[in-house]
Every structure is written in C-alpha cells, then in structure tokens.
Design a protein around this nucleic acid. Structure first.
Lengths: 199, 199
DNA sequence: TTTTATACTGAACGTTCATTCTGTATCATA
DNA sequence: TATGATACAGAATGAACGTTCAGTATAAAA
C-alpha cells in the first residue's frame, strides 16, 4: 500500500471516529458536518470525498458495530450448552454491551427518522431482515434439538427482535431499574411464560 | 358559551385535525407550520395563538389518542373473563387499532427525536411511566387471582410494554406478515413460553 | 521531469423552517 | 357607544445545515 493510500485511510478513520463520538454525544441530527470538521481538522469537501453523505457516514459506522456484535457473539456463544442458556447469554450481551455502545442512541434516532433517501430505507429493511433471519435460525435450532415447542419460528423471531428492540428503548425511560435483571426476566418470560397453566 | 368562543374552539379543532392528517401523511419533522397554514387557511400567528409550539400541538394530538385508547380498552375489556384472555384482547386492540392510527408513525418519529425541549422530555417520560404502571397493575392482578406466577410485576410490566412497542415498530419492516398473528404468537410466548421444560 | 490521479480545501449555494412581532378585525362587556 | 379582550393575519427574523464545486497540493506513474 502507498504512503498516500495509507494516509488517506488514516484520514477516513479519523473522520469516522470523530463522527462516532459526536453522534454519541449529540445525536444524529444535532451533529453537523461542521462539527465533524471542527473535531477533525479535515475540510467539508474532504469528508464528502471519503463518504457519500451524512447518512452514508452513519451507516458506515453502524455496519462496523453490527459486524463487531456478531463477532463477539460468535466468540461468546460457545460457552453455553443449551439454546436456553444461549438466549440468556444473548440477553446479557445485549444488556451490557449494546446499551453502552456509543451509537445506541443515535442509531435509534436515525432508524426512526422519516426523511431518508430510498436506498437508505432499503438498507435498514435489509438490516432488520437479517436480524429476523438470525433469530429464526436460532429458534429453529431450538425446536430441532427438542428444547423449544413447535412454534412458528418466523413469527417468534420477529417477536424476539421486537422484545429486544423495545427493551433497549425502555431501559432508558426506566432508568432506575437494574437493566440486567430487566432483560433477564423478559427472556425468562419468553422461555417459560408467566402463566401458571402451561397448556 | 359565546359565539366567539365557539368559533375559536372550532378553529382550534380545524387546525388540530389538519395537523393530524399532515403528520400522518408526511411525518412530524417533514410537516411544516406552513403546511398546516395552507391546509387550514388559518395564519401562522393564529396557530401559535392556539398552540404553544409545534411540539405542543403534537403533544395535544397525542394526548387525545392516549385518552381514546384507554376509553376503548375500558369498554372492551369486560368481554374477557380471565387475565390471559384480556391480554390477548389487548394485543388485538393494539394490532388492529394502534397500527392503523394516523399518528402511529409520526409518534414514533417524535418520541425518538433527540432535539426536544426539557418539558417535552419530561412529558414523554411521564407517559411511559404511566404505561408501565398500567401493565404492572395488570400483571399484579393476574398474580393475585392465581393466574400468573409470582413474577416481578415491575420488571415484566416494562417487558410487556417493550414487547408491544417493539412489535409496533417491527410490524412495518415485516410488512408481508399477518400482523394479527404476529401479536398473538408474541403474547402466547409471553404467557406460556416457548421452552418445553416449564420449570 | 512531466503528467496524471488522488487527496484535500473552503467559500458559496440553496433551501428549509419555527417562532416572533406589530398590527388589525371582531365580538363581549360596561 | 366606548372600551377592552380575544382572535386572527402575515411579513420579518434569524438561524441552521447538507451538499457542491472550482481550484490547489501532493505523491504516484510515465
């Protein structure tokens, strides 16, 4: 790799990292390109040389996060034996890691914005579909291994994703609660139910 | 009531209804005061005479919705006997009524905006607390009546709210699915669990 | 050394928008 | 009828910000 290419790559990283900090601190909308300029010393034009748009820059950061999450999970999941244990473990990772991830708040804001370019909208849908697929495979494995009932894996995959997405949002409003316990009892309910007559 | 007061009230209603339609159509941020001016024939100044701000106008509409929801639920819940049935009934009302409510999308956007005035932030927190309280009472009743296990009602109230909030959001991404079924299986899981070994 | 592609600059553009403010019309009240 | 309050009009304010573009510097390629 060239000296020039290396510098270019470094610049891109510097911009990305500054952007991540700013998005974390101020939120997506409230972080202006000007803010990133001030934080990096790079010029506006240069930022647009490295990233297609503000949306593109954010999506770049989000992808990094998503990739890292899956890597961490792959490393971690082997310590658990059953699918039930895995699910509790996943809840733990989500509660501890995700909630404290710098992009957490900004991502929520970003995903709920109404003014998005069409390609971004498509990307977001694809991300969700990916998560659904992940959980569907997970649940299906539980069924195949005789741990889970013969439920509709597709529906309950969405149910699981819903629960975790919602949990992540509610954890902020219900601040005084112990978040770990919250996630744990939610998963407990999802696995074993809260009703007494188990039919 | 005066003729003047009546006209004033009508104007306020006209503005509110136009705003609701526009928020539903274009989203919160994308709906400008100018849009509402164009739709009502009222002037900007007049809108600000009747409502404190754009945020205030939206919150006014949201309150109406919240009130109506509780009224509808109060009417409906008596047709169900057990708490389990009630929960399924609630899921139905949420799936059918809420998802089609004009403000649904805009409210999501509004609640996830990062730039909010402090009093609005407080209001939103209060709204959530209210929902938590509602579910906590609900679950506690189930426990007292011997229908539910001795779970932590506080935690699971948040869990329920999380699930429904998440479900409402996911229902858009997973459009092709039958939303009613989706809610139903989520509640089914929450009540009876998906695991086979019910401990 | 000349040429060319890449990396970078920053001023200018174009647009959007919530809110305020000064003034006016209308109706209730005294 | 005179006075005061209420309801309404709409121009002006004032700021914010993403994106583009014409031009410059730097280093690789020829």
């Amino acid at each position: 790799m060239n000296k020039k290419q290396m510098q270019s790559e470094q610049t891109k990283k510097r911009v990305a990292e500054a952007a991540r900090s700013l998005f974390a601190l101020k939120g997506y909308k409230a972080t202006s390109i000007e803010d990133i300029v001030a934080a990096t010393g790079s010029s506006k034009g240069n930022i647009y040389y490295h990233f297609k748009s503000k949306e593109g820059l954010f999506l770049y950061l989000f992808d990094e996060w998503d990739r890292e999450w899956e890597e961490n999970w792959e490393k971690k999941q082997w310590q658990y034996q059953t699918m039930k244990e895995k699910l509790f473990g996943m809840a733990e990772q989500l509660a501890l890691e995700d909630l404290n991830h710098p992009l957490n708040r900004a991502a929520e804001e970003f995903f709920h914005m109404e003014e998005k370019s069409n390609d971004v909208e498509e990307r977001i849908k694809a991300i969700y579909q990916n998560h659904f697929q992940f959980f569907e495979t997970f649940i299906q494995r539980g069924i195949d291994q005789g741990e889970f009932k013969h439920v509709n894996a597709k529906h309950l995959a969405i149910g699981l994703e819903s629960m975790f997405v919602g949990l992540s949002q509610m954890s902020r409003a219900a601040s005084s609660e112990d978040v770990g316990k919250l996630y744990q009892s939610a998963v407990q309910a999802f696995l074993f139910g809260i009703a007494i007559d188990s039919d």
